[in-house]
């Protein structure tokens, strides 16, 4: 039963329609969660006794940082599926994930640096996590650049998938090496993201925001995947029928 559904989902026209029906629901839910999370986080939650109001940027920064890594792993996993089972849809999902992931990584970097200003008095500190995040951004940009440089899109997707898998093997290494480098060169800094006992009123909005970001990723990725499918399958019958129905 599940396998049949999975197989059906793999067919582009079915996926196109399925994703099309899913997007408004998920998008609506995402919006509700986003508004709730921001309200609870920015207004209801108490201010931090050390950092005052400026800590509230975690409601953007932390979920973005989580998403940046999560999406990379999803991308590599889809890439592996695409390479092993030659599943077109997995290629499309992997490739559609890359720009969303890169944007979250960028957002995590920008918010981290904005936070750095009141915390450290400077926009950029070679903090271990920010540095890892910067390198992750380069990994994303590499995948995107490689995909756009290769003309044949199937070939491009397979090349980008390999790169994503190589990247995923390297991420722990990069992370570990950057931590090592950071403790040696900077001396142990007080890591601002570790809050050993976080107030429930602070934690709940954070989790809501994380969920909202995850939904945002899914919605955005599905929209991109639909566009990608249309452009790839532009010569196939189902796209022609779709265009016909749209005109008529």
């Amino acid at each position: 039963m599940f396998m049949r559904w999975f197989h059906e989902l793999g067919s582009p026209p079915y996926f196109y329609r399925f994703a099309g029906r899913l997007i408004p629901w998920l998008g609506g839910l995402c919006l509700v969660l986003l508004v709730t999370g921001l309200y609870l986080g920015l207004i209801v939650a108490p201010s931090d006794y050390q950092q005052g109001e400026s800590y509230r940027i975690i409601y953007i920064h932390v979920p973005s940082a989580w998403m940046s890594l999560f999406i990379y792993v999803v991308m590599a996993a889809c890439g592996a599926i695409a390479l092993i089972w030659r599943m077109k849809l997995a290629e499309v999902v992997a490739i559609s994930s890359a720009p969303v992931g890169a944007s979250f990584t960028f957002l995590a970097l920008v918010t981290g640096s904005l936070w750095g200003k009141p915390m450290w008095g400077t926009w950029w500190v070679w903090d271990a996590r920010l540095t890892s995040e910067l390198l992750l951004l380069f990994l994303y940009l590499g995948v995107i650049a490689l995909y756009s440089a290769i003309e044949d899109k199937r070939q491009a997707a397979r090349a980008a998938s390999i790169l994503a898998i190589v990247g995923v093997v390297n991420i722990p290494l990069i992370h570990y090496s950057v931590e090592w480098w950071n403790t040696l060169h900077q001396g142990p800094t007080v890591t601002k993201f570790d809050a050993p006992s976080i107030d429930v009123r602070m934690l709940v909005p954070l989790l809501i925001m994380a969920l909202a970001f995850k939904l945002f990723y899914i919605v955005n990725m599905l929209m991109r995947a639909r566009c990608e499918l249309l452009s790839r399958e532009r010569n196939s019958r189902w796209v022609a029928e779709l265009a016909e129905a749209d005109h008529g």
Binding site: D152, K153, R234, N235
Partner: peptide, 8 residues
């Protein structure tokens, strides 16, 4: 076999 979206 297709090349650049065109079926050969």
């Amino acid at each position: 076999c297709e090349r650049n979206g065109r079926v050969l």
